[in-house]
Design a binder for these strands. Structure first.
Ligand SMILES: [Mn+2]
Ligand SMILES: [Mn+2]
Ligand SMILES: [Zn+2]
Ligand SMILES: [Zn+2]
Lengths: 135, 135
DNA sequence: GCCAAAGATTGGACTTTGTCTAATCCCCGG
DNA sequence: CCGGGGATTAGACAAAGTCCAATCTTTGGC
């Protein structure tokens, strides 16, 4: 679960991302704890020891990581985007009361009856969100 | 597809909503065109003829309609919430290039292998978003 | 129909999430 | 040990949405 500094450097390099101090800090936060974190949580965590990463860099970096396929976005909360270090196809359980997001392995859930796509269109992904609630 | 004034009044009353002028205008926009509209699009449409509904009222009303089960939210675009006059279980095709949202009837798509829920939890709904793209 | 109370609407200030910009900084290749 | 391209930054900016206190409507009882 915990990555060494040069494992993180290798991970970024593999995705064509130059490893800077800030990017490594952000990657470390994302990959060490395997949770679904929002930008402002990442900003806080990264500056926990001593402040050294700006808000702009956190947003820049998350967008870069996303564009390079290192992480993916999870769109369940209309208020903020969550970032998921797990880019394997999988789905999410969303507790609407607490906001907690839990993974559902892809092979547990099967979807059948996918509609025909308009010609010239390809599927980029299928996201399933199971909204749950207490009671 | 088009509702008369007192059909709309009956619809609101059935959901325990007092029918005011503004609420009827908003309901009319939502139910006459069966699209997935965002708050600011609804604000524009409702004030097309002559301005008479404020931004605050549009947001208040959409939240009220949602809480009363008259409409539902569609969370696919991190930038804004879309409102869906169709509250029957169904799913969505989301064109990530254009932002276009299309319905997928619930019976077309079947999900199997739903995970056990933690005890005391109930499923509020299952949302499937098929993200598509040109090419 | 009339009136008061309860509820709805409003402009505008405010908050939150995220983007942009132009100045500065850093780091790597030659 | 440079020089230059890329990265970082503070802070301004933008968009979506909420909140508030003042005002306006609706409604139910008479
Ligand atoms: Mn550090
Ligand atoms: Mn009108
Ligand atoms: Zn996940
Ligand atoms: Zn729909």
């Amino acid at each position: 679960m915990s990555y060494s500094r040069h494992q993180l450097i290798a991970l970024l390099r593999k995705h064509g991302i130059a490893p800077t101090h800030q990017r490594l800090e952000i990657a470390n936060v994302l990959f060490s704890r395997c949770e679904h974190l929002a930008a402002d949580q990442i900003l806080t965590l990264v500056n926990e020891r001593h402040a050294e990463t700006s808000k702009a860099t956190v947003y820049n970096t998350l967008n870069l990581f996303r564009d390079c396929g290192l992480i993916r976005e999870v769109i369940v909360d209309p208020k903020r985007v969550f970032y998921d270090p797990n880019t394997q196809p999988h789905h999410h359980l969303y507790n609407v009361d607490t906001g907690e997001i839990t993974d559902i392995p892809a092979d547990d859930l099967t979807v059948s009856g996918m509609p025909e796509l308009p010609p010239g269109m390809v599927t980029e992904g299928v996201d399933i969100v199971v909204r749950i609630r207490a009671l």
